[in-house]
């Protein structure tokens, strides 16, 4: 423990291109790129499939399949095939970000009160207005839940990138492992864990700031909304049977 603190306290470890701040920025940079790429793929697909209220099993199936992809295998394979660089690392991490984002967006949109959607259409909203004005704002808690889960996964796994001679906080882990420099490894582990927790906290604050106050309060309407857990998105984002608009006839 003392060795860990003295390693962290050493000013030499806080400067230069191999210092903690530089590694931290690298780590965040890969993570943000991967999350952005994952979101570009997952948000539109999740939103459209949720809006159409059909084909959910495809989302569930592919999200679960991607969850099972071993990150280390994907990363090493992409680097061997494409050469070391930002692109294979980002791609490999983005694959990790997709399942939670996809599941969160899909189930968020799919779970919006069917009465509100029916009313929106009945009042003369066009399909894109139904999606953007009603479904997505109401799905926001679950979408952000997915984002939190994705961010957590990506930040945690970005450490693995160091194995393929890439930067980020993982360097301290891998280099420490190679040279049996235990304080350096422990410092790297602590830094990654702290970063994950801090980002998680910031996203929780963001969620509080941008989700409509009407959607807080125990999730009376959306029983799947969970506040406070970034969590592994549910294995099966298919909602508990959502009641059909009452009075609907065959």
């Amino acid at each position: 423990m003392n060795a860990l603190f003295s390693w962290l306290a050493d000013p030499a470890h806080w400067s230069g291109s191999a210092g903690i701040p530089a590694r931290l920025v690298e780590h965040l940079w890969y993570s943000v790129l991967a999350l952005a790429l994952g979101a570009v793929v997952a948000l539109p697909i999740g939103a459209l499939v949720g809006h159409g209220r059909r084909g959910g099993f495809l989302i569930v199936g592919s999200a679960n399949g991607m969850r099972a992809l071993p990150e280390l295998g994907l990363l090493t394979l992409l680097v061997l095939l494409m050469g070391i660089g930002l692109l294979p690392v980002t791609l490999a991490l983005a694959v990790l970000a997709i399942p939670p984002l996809l599941a969160g967006t899909y189930s968020g949109v799919r779970n919006v009160d069917p009465g509100a959607v029916d009313a929106a259409r009945g009042m003369g909203m066009r399909e894109w207005q139904v999606l953007f004005k009603v479904e997505l704002p109401n799905a926001l808690p679950l979408i952000l839940g997915g984002l939190r889960g994705a961010a957590l996964q990506v930040i945690a796994t970005a450490a693995v990138a160091a194995y393929v001679s890439f930067g980020g906080l993982g360097r301290f882990l891998i280099d420490g492992l190679r040279t049996r420099d235990y304080p350096q490894m422990a410092a790297g582990a602590v830094l990654v864990a702290v970063l994950a927790l801090v980002v998680e906290g910031l996203l929780a604050l963001l969620q509080r700031a941008i989700v409509s106050p009407g959607l807080r309060g125990g999730g009376r309407r959306s029983p799947t909304v969970t506040v406070g857990r970034p969590a592994p998105a549910p294995a099966n984002p298919e909602p508990v049977p959502v009641r059909e608009p009452a009075g609907a006839e065959p």
Binding site: I155, A159, L173, G176, G188, A189, V190, A193, P230, A231
Partner: peptide
């Protein structure tokens, strides 16, 4: 939830201590 946020590689390495 907090336990779940600890990165796996970090946990593998810190556990022995």
């Amino acid at each position: 939830s907090v336990l779940y946020t600890i990165p796996s590689l970090a946990l593998f390495i810190v556990l022995p201590a």
